[in-house]
Amino acid sequence: MSLLDLLIVLARRKWTIVKTTVGLALLAFIVCLFLPKSYTAKTVVLPPQQNSSLASSFMSQLGSLGSLGAFAGSSMGLRDPNEMYVAMFKSRTVEDAMIDRFHLMQEYHEKYLSAARKAFESHAKVEADTKDNLITISVEDHDPRRAAEMANAYVDEYRRLSQHLAIGEAAQRRLFFEQQLEQAKDNLANAEEALKETQQKTGMIQMDSQARALIESAASLRAQIAAKEVQLQAMKSYATDQNAELVQTQKELDALRAQLAQLGGNTDAGSAGLIVPKGKVPEAGLEYVRKYRDVKYYETIFDILARQYELAKLDEAREGALIQVVDPATVPDYKSFPKRGLITLLAALAGLFLGIFIALVQEALARMKADPEQAQKLGLLRAALRRTAS
């Protein structure tokens, strides 16, 4: 059939197409009248912003000794924080709290909590807008007031969960330095106790200023080396040996080790190597020098961690509420389902295509009946179908 023949067929059977289109659209509209109405309430929240912290602002004050703190703070930045917050909203703990708070197992007529959780997930949606850096929480329910209450309660249940988790960068840094600070405090106390015992045994109370300066310089260098080694070890987990930043860090570490070697010391915290050249300290006071060296080393490490810990506490206090509500959910004044206009339009389009198909089938049957040979074959087909049915 040519296009003109097709148009002639459609024009000849236009009433079949019209009746099918109108009938299907009218049927869809009537069905929409009996479908239960649903309302959607939305809450828009603002997650914490990744801004510069006090730790990074005061890092220059620590000089090269801040390598450990700088690395610890930078390595804890979140790659995509919005995705993490969305996952937290969708966590089983938050969903179960919502189900229990609004008695959703009875509402959804479910016997098992897992089934009620799936039903709730079909009625609630949490989406992150990467452009505006906002998170939208949508809750659908047949009661508009209940939908608004659930959308707002979703944020409340999330906040209850987040109170027990350190998900902010400052909170993570605070926990990290808090643990490291406790260990450094114990190490320093042990070193001080060992120095005290050495003083009592050797009778040596103090040393000359030159030896003291050399020991303190060596302790400072060892602290810098410890920080660089931690940074280098972590960088090797994601960077190749040809990485420019890794190569630069390795050169800085080698330079620090060379400076320490010039003083006669080494990087091992428990080593017994001398820190000052021979002749600077009497043989009787050599043990005192070693203990004093350990005390200065652990004092330097403790000072680094204490500064970073205090800055992390200030950052955490400045961070404030993790989630800020931009637009709280209000009672929706218009239903979100069913969308009668859209459903009716789609039904009309489906009816149009169905009507065209029926018109073409009717035209094909009519032509077959008009052709004697085709009519005979059609009769044989009908007879075969009757025998099969009987």
Rank of each mutant, 00 (worst) to 15 (best):
M1C: 03
L4G: 06
L6W: 00
L10H: 02
A11Y: 04
R13K: 10
T16R: 08
V18C: 07
K19I: 15
A25G: 07
A25F: 00
A25Y: 01
L27M: 09
L27W: 04
F29A: 14
C32M: 01
C32R: 10
P36Q: 08
P36V: 07
A41M: 05
K42Q: 14
P48W: 02
Q49C: 02
N51L: 06
F58N: 12
S64M: 11
G66H: 03
G66L: 07
G69E: 08
A72S: 05
R79P: 00
D80T: 06
P81N: 11
P81D: 08
M84I: 05
M88V: 01
S91P: 06
T93I: 13
M98K: 05
F102H: 11
E107D: 08
H109T: 10
S114C: 01
S114T: 11
A128C: 00
K131R: 12
D132W: 09
N133G: 04
I135H: 01
T136Q: 02
V139N: 05
H142M: 15
A147P: 06
A147T: 10
A148C: 01
M150A: 12
N152Y: 07
D156P: 01
R159P: 02
Q163A: 07
A171S: 14
Q172T: 06
Q172A: 08
F176C: 05
F177W: 14
Q179L: 10
Q183K: 13
K185F: 05
N187D: 14
L188W: 01
E192F: 02
K201R: 15
M204V: 11
M207T: 14
I215F: 02
A219M: 08
Q224Y: 04
I225E: 08
E229W: 00
Q231Y: 08
L232E: 12
A234E: 14
A234K: 13
K236Y: 00
K236R: 15
A244V: 12
A244R: 15
A261I: 02
G264H: 03
D268K: 12
A269K: 10
V289S: 11
K291V: 03
K291L: 03
Y292Q: 13
R293I: 03
Y298R: 09
T300N: 14
I304L: 11
R307E: 12
Q308E: 13
Y309C: 09
E316T: 07
A317W: 00
A321I: 02
L322G: 02
I323W: 01
V326P: 00
D327G: 02
D327A: 09
A329H: 01
T330E: 06
D333G: 08
Y334T: 13
K335E: 10
L342W: 08
T344M: 13
L345T: 14
A347L: 02
L349V: 15
G351L: 10
G351D: 12
I356N: 03
F357S: 14
A359T: 10
L360R: 07
L360C: 07
V361M: 08
A364F: 06
L365R: 15
A366S: 15
A366G: 05
R367K: 11
M368V: 09
A370S: 12
P372A: 14
Q374T: 11
Q374E: 14
Q374S: 14
L378F: 04
L378H: 09
A383N: 13
